[in-house]
Write a protein that binds this DNA or RNA. Sequence first.
DNA 1: TTGTAAGCGTTATCAG
DNA 2: CTGATAACGCTTACAA
Lengths: 339, 339
Amino acid sequence: MQNLKDRVTIYQVAQAAGVSLATVSRVINKSTSVTPATRKKVEDTIEALGYKPSGLAQALATSRTTSIGVIIPSANYVYIANLLAGITEVVKEKDYSLSLFTTSHSREEALATIERVITAHVDGTIIFDDQLSQEDVEKIVSYNVPSVVIDNKIHGERVCDIHFSYDNSLRELIQRYYERGRVNPMAFLHVHNAGRLINRCEKTFIRTHEELGKDYRIINCDDSYTHTYRQFLDYFKEPDNHKGYYICYRDSIAAAVMNAAMDSGIAVPEQVEVLSLVGTKYAHIVRPCLSGFHIDMQEVGKRAMYMLTDLLNGDLVDKTARFEAQLTLGDTTKKVENN
Amino acid sequence: MQNLKDRVTIYQVAQAAGVSLATVSRVINKSTSVTPATRKKVEDTIEALGYKPSGLAQALATSRTTSIGVIIPSANYVYIANLLAGITEVVKEKDYSLSLFTTSHSREEALATIERVITAHVDGTIIFDDQLSQEDVEKIVSYNVPSVVIDNKIHGERVCDIHFSYDNSLRELIQRYYERGRVNPMAFLHVHNAGRLINRCEKTFIRTHEELGKDYRIINCDDSYTHTYRQFLDYFKEPDNHKGYYICYRDSIAAAVMNAAMDSGIAVPEQVEVLSLVGTKYAHIVRPCLSGFHIDMQEVGKRAMYMLTDLLNGDLVDKTARFEAQLTLGDTTKKVENN
DNA sequence: TTGTAAGCGTTATCAG
DNA sequence: CTGATAACGCTTACAA
C-alpha cells in the first residue's frame, strides 16, 4: 500500500486480479454469484492494493448517495447537539452518511443553504429550522429529496413531520396555577425571532389567560444568558417586582432570571418562580433545580431518521409523529399538594 | 418547474437553449468567456428549467468534492457542539460542505468510520477524536485526504495539529496552592477512558505533586453527572471528607461534586473546593460559579477549518497551532490575594 | 459464472 | 467563442 496514492480504481484491481471490472464490482456489492475462487482472488487483491470504492462514482452510477442532509440553524445549542447525536446513531445503524447544513440568520444564507442541499444530492433531509417556509421545503422536495421536518408545520407528498406538543400541558399548568388561588399574574418572556416553538407557547399563554379572564404580562428579553441576567438584575431593583411567575424560553434564560433574583436577595421559589420551556440536562444541575418542560431530543433525532429511512424505502406508516413536552417540577416553582 | 422531477441535466439545458453541453458548463463555472447573448440565453433556460448542477458529477469530473469530513466521538457534548459551530461558520465562508462522522465507543466502529470517511471522498478532515491512533490518521491521509487533528499529538506530511495546552497553567495552579500554605492534599478525579486531555492533566497533576514532595489523591469516578453526584453524596457522609480540593474533568462533573457537597451541608468553597478542566458557558450559570479552565471551542473550530483550507490550497504557514487553557477563578475555589 | 459495453452528469482538451 | 469527445470510477443490463 503506497502512500499518498492517487487512489486505486476498480479497473486496477480488475487488472491485478486478472478479471474484469464487472466481477470486481460484483464482489464489492455481494450481488450476483461469483465463484468462491475468484471472489477470494479479488478480495485478496483489493486488500493488497488497499482499494476503497469511490462513493462518488457509485452514487453517480446508482443515483443514490446514501447520504442524508441535516438542516439546522446552528449546532451551538445543547438540544440541537442532542438531536444530532440521535440522528447520527441511526445514520450509522442504517449505513447512511450525514451532511450538515446550517442556515444562520439571514434569508440569503438560508437560500444559499437550500441550493447547497440540492446540489449535494442527498437522498433525503431532516429539517429542524424555523426559518424555512413551506415553499422552501417544497422546493427541496421537488428535487426529489424526501424530507422530515421537525416542529415546523409543513405537509406535502414526500414530507413527514414531527410535532412538539406543548399546548395542552402548558394550558393545564396555567389553569392549575390560578385554580390554586394564585393571584400574581404570570409573566411570559418574549424573545424576538426565536422561532415557532416559543411563539406557539406565547399564543397558548395569552389565549389561556384570556379564556380565564386573568391578567398577564409579556416581558421582552434577549436569547442570551448574560443579557437577560443583567436585565433582570435591573428589573429586581424595583421592589414591586420581587414576586412573580416567569415563563422562559430555555434553561439558560430561566437560570438568568433565577440567578438575578437570588443575587438580589429574592427567594426562589417563595417570591419569584421560574419555569423553562426547553429544558436540558442542565436543569438538574443548577440549584435550585429548574422546573420546566422537556423533550428528549436524542429520541427525536432517532425517530426522525427512522421516519426518513422508511420514507425513502417507501414503507412509511405514519407521516407524522408527536412528542409531548414533559413537565418536570423542580425547585423553582412552589410545590402544590397533588392529592 | 415541474414537481418531483427526475432532475434536469446539463444536457437538457443545452438542448433547450440550443447550445452544446460545453457552453452550459462554461456559464455555470464562469470560466472561459461566453458571449453575453448566449450566456443570457443559457442562464434563462437554467432558471426556467430549475436546473441545479449535480455535485456528484462535478466531483467525479474534477476529483474534488469541496466537502470536508469532521470526525468526532459524539455530538452530544457542549464543547463539541461549539466546535462544530465554529467549523460550520468557516465551511460556509469557504464554500465547502461538511460531512459528519462519529466513532462511538468500540474499536470496530472506529474502523468502520475510517472506511466511510475514505469512500466518502472528502477533500480533507478535521479530527477531534482520541480513539484514533497515529496509524488510523495516517491511513486516512494516505488516501489523499489531508487532515487537521485536534488535541491528539499526531504528525505527518499532510497533517496539521491543534494542541491544547494545560500543562503550564495547571502546574502553576498547583504550585501556588501549596505556596499559600495550603495543606490539604489536592484530589484528582480520574475518569477511565475519557481521552488524552484528562490523561495528560492527570500526569501533570501527579508529576507536579511529586516534584513538590506533596501528597495527593486520585479518586475514580464516572463521566456522568448523576453517578458522580450520588458517589459524592456517599463520600461526604464521612466527616473526614468534609474538606478538600477536587479537580474534575468537566463542568458537569465539577457541578456534581459541588452540589453533593452543598446538599450535604458542606460549604463551598470554605470546606470543599472544586475546579473543572473543561469549562463551558454553564460554569457561569451554576451557583456558585465554577472555577476552571476554559478553551473557546468555537474559535478552535474556526481555526481548524482555516488551517485545513490552507493545507488544501498548499499555502499553509504553520502546521501547528496551540490553544492555551484560560483559568477563570469563580466561587468554588478560595480567593487568594493576588498582590 | 464472467466479460462487454452503455450509461450516470459533469469537466476539460481539443479542434474549428 | 463554441462544439465534439474523451475522461472521471462505478453499476448494470446483455451476451457469451
